[in-house]
Amino acid sequence: MKKIFGIVLALMTTLFMSSCFKDSQSVFDSTYLVEFQDAVVTSPATSLGKTYPIISVANGAGLQTRRINLVGRQRPNQESIKFSVDTKESTAVEGVHYSLEGGVVTLAANSSFGDCKFNILRAPSATGTNVLLVLVLEGNGSDIKPNENYKRLGFRINL
């Protein structure tokens, strides 16, 4: 009898405790965000006091392509996501160290990814020096916003 009572008590306790959990089914709140894939998977350069990662690239490395993620449901129409250079953080000069490929990333219809393209130009060499290029996602200007934690990506161009 005591054994049965113990089993029933354990089952009732388990049933009672599990009934208090919130519904664990996630519901997307229809917010759309964009982020750099490299910023998501690479640690920030906290040793340099930065909240974004910095990737080293060679002088004159040419066309660079970085993946952009759409966080949220895929869109039925093509979307244009703007990106720019953070002039407060960057020391690289446009036309000397880099050139942007239009400053726009195109997300194809029914896709969660796009490619951010820019060129690293051959700048005059200065042994042992480097410049910093920081790209920032801006969103589409309406309902797709940049993810604040992953909207910046830095590139150290080794001259």
Rank of each mutant, 00 (worst) to 15 (best):
Asp86Lys: 10
Ser111Asp: 11
Thr127Glu: 05
Glu79Lys: 11
Ala92Met: 02
Met12Tyr: 04
Ser125Trp: 10
Cys116Asn: 13
Leu100Pro: 15
Val27Gly: 02
Pro124Ser: 07
Val134Met: 01
Gly128Arg: 07
Gln74Asn: 03
Val104Ile: 14
Gly6Thr: 08
Tyr150Leu: 13
Gly60Glu: 09
Val57Lys: 14
Leu100Thr: 02
Leu135His: 02
Thr46Tyr: 10
Asn69Gly: 03
Lys88Met: 12
Lys3Ala: 05
Val85Trp: 01
Gln25Thr: 08
Lys50His: 06
Ala45Gln: 04
Phe16Arg: 03
Val96Ile: 15
Asn119Phe: 12
Ala126Glu: 11
Val93Thr: 13
Thr46Arg: 08
Ala10Leu: 15
Ser30Pro: 00
Val71Phe: 07
Gly6Ser: 10
Glu79Ser: 13
Gly6Met: 08
Lys151Gln: 09
His97Trp: 12
Thr42Asp: 05
Gly128Cys: 01
Gly141Met: 04
Ile68Trp: 01
Pro146Met: 06
Met17Val: 15
Gly114Phe: 14
Ile54Val: 15
Phe21Lys: 02
Val104Thr: 13
Asn158Ser: 07
Arg66Met: 11
Arg73Lys: 15
Gly141Asn: 12
Thr31Tyr: 14
Ile55Met: 10
Arg66Thr: 12
Ser24Glu: 11
Ser19Arg: 15
Glu89Asp: 04
Thr87His: 09
Thr106Tyr: 03
Tyr52Ala: 05
Pro44Lys: 11
Leu135Val: 05
Ala123Asn: 01
Thr14Lys: 00
Met1Arg: 10
Leu135Thr: 06
Leu70Asn: 08
Glu89Lys: 04
Leu107Phe: 05
Ala126Tyr: 04
Leu48Phe: 13
Glu94Ser: 12
Arg73Pro: 00
Cys20Glu: 09
Lys2Gly: 14
Asp115Pro: 00
Glu138Tyr: 00
Lys82Phe: 13
Ser56Thr: 10
Phe118Ala: 10
Phe21Leu: 09
Ile7Thr: 08
Leu132Cys: 06
Gln64Phe: 03
Gly154Gln: 07
Thr87Pro: 00
Val136Pro: 01
Val96Gly: 02
Gln78Phe: 04
Asp115Ile: 03
Val131Thr: 12
Arg156Pro: 00
Gly6Leu: 15
Tyr32Gln: 14
Ser84Thr: 14
Leu133Lys: 03
Glu94Arg: 09
Lys145Thr: 08
Ile157Asp: 06
Thr14Cys: 05
Phe5Ala: 07
Pro53Asn: 08
Gln74Asp: 10
Met12Glu: 05
Thr106Met: 13
Lys117Leu: 09
Arg73Gly: 09
Val93Gln: 15
Thr129Trp: 10
Gly154Glu: 07
Glu148Met: 11
Gln74Thr: 12
Val85Lys: 00
Asp38Val: 10
Tyr52Glu: 11
Arg122Gln: 12
Ile4His: 10
Ser111Ala: 13
Ala61Tyr: 09
Leu11Ile: 12
Phe16Trp: 03
Glu101Trp: 12
Ser47Cys: 08
Met1Pro: 02
Asn69Val: 00
Ile144Thr: 06
Glu79Thr: 10
Asn59Pro: 14
Ala45His: 01
Val134Cys: 08
Lys145Tyr: 14
Ser26Leu: 13
Ala45Gly: 01
Pro76Ile: 04
Thr65Asp: 11
Phe83Gln: 03
Met1Thr: 04
Ala39Tyr: 01
Phe118Leu: 05
Tyr52Asp: 07
